[in-house]
Amino acid sequence: MIVVPCPNCGPRNSSDLRNAGEVAPRPDPETASLTEWRSYLYLRENPAGWVTETWYCRSGCRRYFTIERNTATNEIRESENS
């Protein structure tokens, strides 16, 4: 049970939150080619190291926020664009 720092609620057990996965920028649906769109849908960097990801404060304030987590160690640090 790792501790995830919610910007509103402070450090919380991860069971209070939901991990919404690696941040993947959404292309403009008007102009994106199908190939670009499907890269957005399916391809993930999936690194063994620092990843920027979204969490949802499900049992708390309901905020979606991003943090950086090291997938090899589970260390967590603030994301620049949280």
């Binding site: 049970m1 991860s14 939901r18 991990n19 996965g21 690696e22 999936n46 063994a48 987590r69 997938t71 090899a72 160690t73 589970n74």
Partner: peptide, 11 residues
Amino acid sequence: PVGTYRVNGTL
């Protein structure tokens, strides 16, 4: 549910 390369397991 959370993606990771850690194989420590959880309680």
